Amino acid sequence: MQSKNRVLKEAKVAEIREKMEKAQGIILSEYQGLTVEQDTELRKKLREAGVEYRVYKNTLVTLAAKELGIEGLEKHLQGPVSIAFGYEDPTAPARVLADFAKSNKKLELKAGYVQGVVYDTAQVKELAAIPPRDVLIAKLLGSFKAPLSNLAYLLNAIAEKKQGEVAE
């Protein structure tokens, strides 16, 4: 018969694995030294961005990552590590954590796992610079709209010119 402790650990590993599978973006950060107020503020910002923020035992996260075939994340699971799971926007956890780290030097980005790729600290900071999905879509649509607007303006000017010539 399995010990109660082992059953609890297996359940926790399954929970972590499920979150990791569901998440489009996962960011690891070191939070040691944050005050309660700073941690509360960080959690609020992450919640507003649709990001789940948790602290698990590193060994359990390592087991869950191995079960999912994620390699390279375990070397970043040293010391007190928090995990931010982004379910909607893969870059949201990196963006919120990096922004918060600018004014709170105790928070350090460690690594990330986004859409099947493990990223180091520098790459996570680059991910943080990517605008949210809706902003990217708006920019794309804007770049489509500008040439179409110019074409419509040109066609309208040609039509008005021809009407002016017919009227003469």
Rank of each mutant, 00 (worst) to 15 (best):
M1E: 13
M1R: 04
N5A: 15
R6Y: 11
V7H: 08
K9P: 11
A11E: 14
A11P: 02
V13I: 14
A14D: 13
E15W: 02
I16Y: 10
I16C: 01
R17E: 15
M20W: 11
K22D: 10
A23T: 15
A23Y: 14
G25K: 06
I27S: 13
L28V: 02
L28F: 13
S29W: 07
E30I: 04
E37Q: 13
E37Y: 10
E37P: 08
Q38M: 11
T40V: 11
K44H: 09
L46G: 14
R47G: 11
E48M: 07
E48Y: 04
A49L: 12
A49E: 09
A49W: 03
G50D: 01
G50M: 09
G50C: 05
R54S: 06
V55E: 04
Y56T: 06
Y56R: 02
Y56D: 03
Y56N: 03
K57H: 05
N58I: 12
T59R: 07
T59C: 02
T59N: 11
L60P: 02
V61T: 09
V61M: 04
T62P: 00
A64L: 01
K66I: 05
K66E: 15
E67F: 10
E67M: 01
I70F: 02
E71D: 05
L73Q: 05
L73I: 12
K75W: 01
H76T: 02
L77V: 04
P80Y: 00
P80S: 03
V81H: 01
S82R: 10
I83H: 03
A84P: 10
D89R: 05
D89L: 02
T91G: 01
T91I: 07
A92S: 01
P93N: 11
A94L: 08
A94M: 09
R95A: 11
R95W: 14
V96R: 09
D99T: 15
F100N: 05
A101N: 05
K102S: 07
K102N: 00
S103Y: 07
S103R: 14
N104C: 00
E108Y: 07
K110A: 01
A111L: 05
Y113G: 08
V114M: 14
Q115W: 00
V117D: 01
V117N: 07
Y119K: 01
D120H: 03
A122D: 09
K125P: 02
L127G: 06
A129W: 08
I130V: 15
P132A: 11
P132C: 13
D134A: 13
D134F: 14
L136D: 10
I137V: 15
A138C: 06
K139Y: 07
L140H: 10
L141I: 13
K145T: 08
N150R: 12
N150A: 14
N150C: 04
L151W: 03
A152W: 04
A152Y: 08
Y153T: 15
Y153D: 13
Y153N: 14
I158D: 03
E160K: 10
K162E: 09
G164W: 01
V166I: 10
A167S: 13
A167P: 00
E168R: 13
